[in-house]
C-alpha cells in the first residue's frame, strides 16, 4: 500500500519545548487515522506542518510522492489536503451558507466577477454538505451567532466543500453535545467513506477513536509512542498508563 501523506524524521520545537523529534508517520489511502496523546504533545503541530502553516526544522513531508515542505497552506489546500480547526475558523459576519458558497466557489475556481454568490451552480452540493453535518437549519444565520458545537461542524463542512483527498480534523466533535456526537460522526465518516476521502483526526475521546478510526497513532512528548489498530493500541498497558489514564 502506498502512503498518501508521508512524514519522515520531523523535528520542531517552540522555545525549548520539543513538539516533534524524529517523528515518522504515514497516512495511507482510505485511512481514518486517529492521533491521540496528552495535551501539548504536538498533535496539532503535526496538522500545522502537513498544511504548511509551520515549517519543521528537520525532516520531510510528501503528499502523493511530492514534497510539500515550503509550500503555503493555500497551495497545499489546492493539492487536496483540507483542514478543519480546533478553534473554528469561520467568516463570522457572513451567513453559514455564504461561508459554504465561498468555499465551493473557490473549489470550482468560480471567479466570474458578476455571478451572484447565491446563484452559483455549486449551491446544491454545498447545501447537501450542510445537511450532512446537521447544519442545514442554521444556513441563513450569521456564523457569529452559532453555538460552539455548530461552529465546529460548519468548520468541517467548509473543508468538505473543497472536495479534498485528505481531510485533517482537530478534535472534530469537541463542543458538540454528547447526545449528537455519534450521530454526526456516523454520517460524517459514512460520507468520507462514500466519497473515498482519507481522514486524520486528533482526538481525546477514546470511544470516538475505537468507533471510527482504523488506525491509531499515539503522540507523546514529541515522539510516536506506538501505532497500529485501535484494538491493539488501546490495550497496550503503556499507552493506557501515559495517555488514557486510569
Amino acid at each position: 500500500m502506498t502512503a498518501l501523506i508521508s512524514a519522515k524524521d520531523l523535528a520542531i520545537s517552540f522555545g525549548g519545548v520539543i513538539a516533534a523529534e524524529g517523528v515518522s508517520l504515514d497516512v495511507f489511502e482510505d485511512d481514518h487515522l486517529a492521533i491521540i496523546g496528552p495535551n501539548g504533545a504536538g498533535k496539532t503541530t503535526f496538522l500545522n506542518i502537513c498544511t504548511g502553516y509551520l515549517k519543521p526544522s528537520a525532516g520531510s513531508v510528501t503528499f502523493q510522492g511530492r514534497s510539500i515542505l515550503g509550500s503555503s497552506p493555500r497551495a497545499i489546500t489546492r493539492m487536496g489536503i483540507a483542514r478543519a480547526f480546533q478553534i473554528p475558523q469561520l467568516f463570522t459576519e457572513q451567513t453559514v451558507l455564504e461561508n459554504m458558497l465561498i468555499a465551493a466557489a473557490s473549489q470550482a475556481r468560480r471567479f466570474a466577477p458578476f455571478t451572484p454568490l447565491m446563484q452559483i451552480p455549486e449551491r446544491k452540493e454545498a447545501e447537501h454538505i450542510l445537511e450532512l453535518v446537521g447544519c442545514d437549519d442554521v444556513s441563513d444565520r450569521p456564523a457569529s451567532e452559532l453555538p460552539e458545537g455548530k461552529r465546529k461542524l460548519v468548520d468541517i463542512a467548509l473543508a468538505l466543500a473543497l472536495k479534498p483527498k485528505v481531510l485533517l480534523m482537530d478534535e472534530p466533535t469537541s463542543g458538540v453535545a454528547s447526545s449528537e456526537k455519534f450521530d454526526i460522526m456516523d454520517t460524517l465518516i459514512g460520507a468520507l467513506r462514500e466519497q473515498q476521502v482519507t481522514s486524520v483526526f486528533v482526538e481525546h475521546d477514546m470511544e470516538m477513536v475505537s468507533r471510527y478510526a482504523n488506525r491509531v497513532a499515539v503522540w507523546n512528548a514529541g515522539h510516536i509512542q506506538s501505532q497500529g489498530t485501535p484494538e491493539d493500541v488501546l490495550q497496550d498497558p503503556e499507552v493506557v498508563r501515559t495517555v488514557i489514564g486510569v
Binding site: 498544511t51 503555503s72 497552506p73 493555500r74 489546500t77 489546492r78 483540507a82 483542514r83 475558523q89 469561520l90 467568516f91 463570522t92 459576519e93 457572513q94 455564504e98 458558497l101 465561498i102 468555499a103 466557489a105 473557490s106 473549489q107 468560480r110 471567479f111 466570474a112 466577477p113 458578476f114 455571478t115 451572484p116 454568490l117 447565491m118 452559483i120 467548509l158 473543508a159 473543497l162
Partner: peptide
C-alpha cells in the same frame, strides 16, 4: 455580490480560513 466580493468581505473576519480555502 459575487464570490470574489464575498471573499473580500471575508478578509475582514478571517484570513486564515481564506488561505485554507485555497485563496
Amino acid at each position: 455580490d459575487s464570490p470574489l466580493g464575498h471573499t473580500l468581505k471575508a478578509i475582514k473576519t478571517n484570513e486564515t480560513r481564506i488561505e485554507y480555502l485555497g485563496l
